[in-house]
Design a binder for these strands. Structure first.
Lengths: 196, 196
DNA sequence: GTCTATAATTTGATAGAC
DNA sequence: GTCTATCAAATTATAGAC
């Protein structure tokens, strides 16, 4: 594994923050260079193109998401593994909110150079959730339906997590996790708990 | 209410489709004009700027989302009103997938000229879900927690809906709705249904 | 490896004829 | 109201010195 140079790391970090702020198309290579504290020539020395830079950023981000989900899934069984995945994802989002914002904005884009890589990596991440779901849903549920459910859970945590960080960052992580899990607990559909 | 001219409508439609495809920053006014079948001068005759064009598109889109959610909420009580909102949102997404994609990509952007309008309109939409949630959660649940839950439900339907349209468009809408609602039904957390 | 300077294009926006 | 022509600025990418 070749070590990533300090320059390359600074460029990636700058691109991530700016991309989260303005989107990929809205971020310029001049800005990236300036924020990274290097000249633009150095950016192009390290990355072949703007697409190459952001492609690397996003694919490595989705990979780390998959790893997190996989570890969480294997750490428990049954519904507890869903709980672990929600908590793991929220931690990841909180620790790297720029990446979360960037991913939320770009995950459904289908016109990038690295589109196919992203589609397959996203599928990989959703498959982790789907695998945890498989023993919890009726046996005749099709794989595509389970993937739909997985997409829903993923979307819930991502949007809930961003809502949290952007609009009520004071809330403790555990409370956010509990709130999201509450919606999956079925207690919403159990009469009127507020009267209890 | 002034009627919207055919030209203006064509421009809005073109901007919506291109924006869904390439994002707002990735869409050029030249492309918009070409796709709308008018000259660029006509685009600027109808809209003061690119920001004005997309701002109008997004704010009207979020408004119609709020309306749909409100109607769905009032059409039922208890958990059934959540079910109605999920179904209503999915219909909206299916009928206007370009708008759904555009919204998913831009809803967390915080650097636009119309940022404040969007934030308040989004809050309005989430408040509809939050209102339906209020009688279903423990009485001591704070408003910000309920909004977090609302964000989660919103995210689940949006991402699940896009997953549906992009990757398994053959699935009937009712099945998608049922799959997403299943995750909120608590049946995930009820032992191992696959063994039943 | 990093920098400065610059080429080649693209892009938002405007002017003014019709 | 719509078009053509055009400007001024921005933007991706490269060349070549150090």
């Amino acid at each position: 594994m070749p070590r990533i140079s300090a320059t390359k790391q600074a460029i990636l970090a700058a691109a991530l923050e700016l991309g989260a702020l303005h989107g990929i198309s809205g971020t310029t290579m001049d800005e990236v260079a300036e924020r990274a504290g290097v000249a633009k020539g150095s950016v192009y020395y390290n990355f072949a193109s703007k697409d190459g830079l952001f492609g690397e950023l996003l694919t490595s981000g989705v990979s780390s998401l998959s790893r997190t989900l996989r570890e969480a899934r294997l750490s428990a069984t049954g519904f507890a593994s869903i709980e672990a995945m929600v908590a793991g994802m929220l931690t990841l989002i909180a620790d790297n909110r720029a990446l979360a914002k960037l991913m939320a904005a770009e995950i459904f884009r289908t016109d990038r150079a690295w589109q196919e890589t992203m589609v397959s990596l996203r599928r990989e991440a959703l498959s982790e959730i789907e695998a945890a779901l498989a023993p919890l849903v009726p046996r005749d549920t099709s794989e595509s339906t389970r993937l739909l459910m997985a997409g829903g859970i993923f979307g819930a945590v991502l949007m809930g997590g961003l809502e949290w960080l952007l609009f009520s960052p004071g809330t403790p992580a555990a409370e956010v996790s509990a709130a999201l899990l509450f919606t999956f607990s079925g207690k919403l559909d159990a009469g009127s708990p507020s009267a209890a």
